[in-house]
Design a protein around this nucleic acid. Structure first.
Length: 696
DNA sequence: ACGGGTGAGACA
DNA sequence: TTGTCTCAC
């Protein structure tokens, strides 16, 4: 639901930049012979020629529309060139478009605060740039105005027959008697025209733009003249624009809310909303939406340009429509593995390029169940803390799926004996990673990361209990024996074979990845204890025929007593391991909890040395106790916020949940004998390492 | 039960 | 907060 934001009296200059049929342009850049031809991008083509997701303007002239099938497009436009979306891991791979979108963003972001609204859309706050231009080189002072700016469309500008349009535009841009806000918009027009030319020059992509005083109007304007044009909405034209604008054209009103406005209130144009008081609209649609509606009817929208160049989440999903629905658990596992592999790859790229870490893994699925009246039941979404590493993500996703499945099947449990004819199937799977945050560079990154974890992941006791109940890793044993084992017998022989092959692929993939990055030397440099832990962990759940479905061998955990909730691995353990496991807390941000698990008796008796890096202090006492706190905190807070723990008690495996690159830092940092001497030197190396891949 | 794959945001 | 829902391209 839309929400009204506080309105700033709008002297802002906001632009919305919209790439023209973006995927088509990306493909045309890759294959220049397609330029100028009717072209469309399709994903998959086996069924009715695939679905169109982008259509060139030449093809649109022939009546080709988005969401046509490839075959339909061929019917209305036989000469159309259809380009397929790249496929990787059996699914559409949009990475090339994401990367192309990033190219554009990095150019646009030079001009002002920039928000990546989608893969091909950007909002820009050009207020500062426009004010500066108006003060230093206002349009009226320029001898020449670029042709691209003169081609702009100015809403409400009168156009007498016979007069030269560009001349009109030039006049409007250079009016010395215009009010301040129109002058700012005029500057915006020049800036945006220039930006669009830069984008074209540097990427070969054309785009369209809207320029106005807020996001809503700019978004409307950018769509008015496409492709490769720009439109400005001066204040005085707002009323005229909105009064005849079909309500469904307004962003956020294209769906049910817009329909409701039409059918319930007889509002067919945005201007029709003016008939209703704010209070009336609030009565119908609630306080937030009501106020929002009242505002947009007047062209008011206080929404800020966010200043975000990167996505807030990453997802990978696929649908399995109709007959392709997944009926067997091994098929689900196969596809989940593919999706997780892609997700993991993208997470690592994000880590390398942007030094960002995601903290939550979510699984969404859609399913049908024809057996009973319950067929409308939705498959529940599940999420858990995200552990880095392809195999871990795959395991966790599978656990989330099984948690969802048990809930979904619920009372049907045993009845749903699986074979391919049974009345249920999975029609969609997706995994996503969210709660992404920056890791500041430098040695202190680790500290800051932990602090951030603490803030964001410190659950109340209540929330923790809930987590224990819902976390797929915490199923009790007898619970898991019932449903899951039933399902386990549903495997078909062929599918089992597929999975087995794939499993080994996964392991080798992981190994390959490791060798390519800096991790192997690090692995081999690790103390033997840690190495042992890895060798046990990696292939474990994929090594045997039933392993990937056998809860005892995967991540089954039971609750262990204690004030802090603790999960303990169910697998056989050496004495040493038992000791470590008592500190283990997998499936949750365990490092964090670990840090909170303070043992005062160890730390207080030690004398504390202080060493400062950036704005984080690492206080180390003797060889085996370290405490961390930010020095930006006030004196009295510092005492409370300080964490202390004994280095010897760190379970190496909890570190595994961090991204590998961070693990490296942590382990080096924890290496007792060299900690002191290495600190400064390492901070340089790490900073250096992090800045090496810097892109944007 | 084919507009797919992805994103963002609001709400309970 | 998690999970659900809506909306958009």
């Amino acid at each position: 639901m839309p929400v009204a934001k506080p309105v700033s009296s709008d002297g802002r200059v906001i632009a919305h930049i919209d790439m023209d049929c973006f995927y088509v342009q990306v493909e045309q850049r890759r294959q220049p012979e397609l330029r100028g031809l009717p072209t469309a991008v399709v994903q998959y083509n086996s069924w009715k020629g695939g679905g169109l997701i982008a259509v060139s303007y030449e093809a649109r002239k022939h009546g080709v529309k988005r969401s046509m099938r490839g075959d339909e497009a061929k019917e209305v436009c036989p000469q159309i060139r259809l380009v397929q979306v790249p496929v990787a891991r059996g699914k559409a791979d949009l990475n090339s478009y994401r990367e192309a979108g990033s190219e554009v963003v990095s150019i646009l972001a030079r001009a002002g605060r920039c928000e990546r609204a989608s893969i091909d859309e950007v909002y820009l706050d050009l207020t500062d740039a426009a004010e500066t231009m108006l003060a230093e080189t206002p349009p009226e002072s320029l001898e020449v105005i670029d042709d691209e700016a003169l081609k702009s469309h100015i809403l409400g500008l009168k156009h007498e027959d016979g007069s030269d349009m560009k001349e009109n535009v030039k006049e409007w841009l250079c009016r010395s008697d215009a009010d301040h806000r129109d002058k700012l918009l005029a500057c915006g027009v020049l800036i945006v025209a220039d930006l669009r030319m830069q984008v074209l020059q540097e990427t070969q992509f054309t785009c369209s733009a809207g320029i106005s005083h807020n996001k809503m109007l700019s978004k409307l304007a950018s769509a008015m003249n496409k492709p490769a044009q720009q439109t400005v909405v001066p204040c005085l034209s707002v009323q005229g624009l909105l009064e005849s604008l079909p309500i469904k054209k307004m962003k956020q009103l294209g769906g049910k809310l817009g329909s409701s406005l039409q059918s319930e209130l007889g509002v067919n144009f945005v201007g029709d909303l003016l008939r209703f008081s704010e209070q009336k609209l609030q009565e119908y649609y609630g306080i937030n939406t009501g106020t929002w509606l009242w505002n947009i009817a007047r062209g008011i929208s206080g929404e800020e340009v966010e200043g975000r160049l990167l996505p807030k989440s990453h997802g990978s999903g696929k649908t399995f429509p109709g007959p392709r629905a997944l009926k067997m658990l091994p098929s689900v596992q196969h596809w989940l593995n593919e999706l997780c592999e892609e997700l993991s790859e993208r997470l690592h790229i994000d880590l390398d390029q942007n030094r960002r870490i995601a903290r939550t893994l979510s699984l969404h699925a859609s399913a049908y169940m024809s057996s009973d009246s319950d067929s409308h039941k939705k498959f529940p979404s599940k999420s858990c803390p995200l552990r880095y590493g392809t195999i871990k993500i795959q395991e966790d996703a599978m656990n989330l799926f099984q948690a969802g499945l048990r809930e979904y099947l619920g009372p049907f449990k045993v009845k749903m004996q699986g074979n391919k004819k049974s009345g249920w199937g999975i029609t969609g799977l997706s995994v996503s990673a969210s709660k992404i945050s920056d890791i500041p560079s430098g040695t202190s990154s680790i500290m800051k990361y932990f602090q951030g974890q603490d803030q964001l992941c410190s659950p109340s006791k209540l929330a923790k209990d809930k987590l224990e109940l819902e976390n797929p890793c915490s199923f009790s044993e007898d619970e898991s024996n019932s449903t899951l084992n039933v399902i386990e017998h549903m495997k078909l022989p062929e599918e089992e074979a597929t999975i087995k092959n794939e499993s080994s692929d996964l392991v080798s993939t992981e190994y390959k990845t490791s060798r390519n990055s800096l991790e192997v030397p690090f692995y081999s440099a690790m103390p033997s204890l840690e190495k042992a832990d890895f060798s046990q962990e990696t292939p474990l759940s994929f090594s045997g025929r039933e392993s990937h479905l056998e809860p005892k061998l995967t991540e089954l955990r039971s609750k262990v007593s204690g004030e802090e909730s603790t999960f303990e691995s169910g697998r056989p353990a050496s004495e040493q391991q038992v000791k470590r496991n008592s500190l283990r807390d997998k499936g949750t941000p365990s490092l964090l909890r670990f840090f909170r698990r303070v043992d005062p008796s160890c730390s207080l008796q030690n004398e504390v040395l202080t060493q400062s890096f950036d704005n984080t202090n690492i206080c180390s006492s003797s060889e085996n106790s370290i405490s961390i706190h930010g020095d930006s905190l006030s004196e009295d807070l510092q005492g409370k916020e300080m964490w202390q723990y004994n280095v010897d008690e760190i379970d190496p495996s909890v570190i595994d949940e961090l991204p590998l690159k961070i693990q490296e830092e942590v382990r080096a940092w924890l290496r007792p004998q060299k900690r002191q001497a290495n600190s400064v030197r390492r901070s340089v190396g790490i900073t250096d390492y992090f800045s090496r891949n810097k892109k944007l």
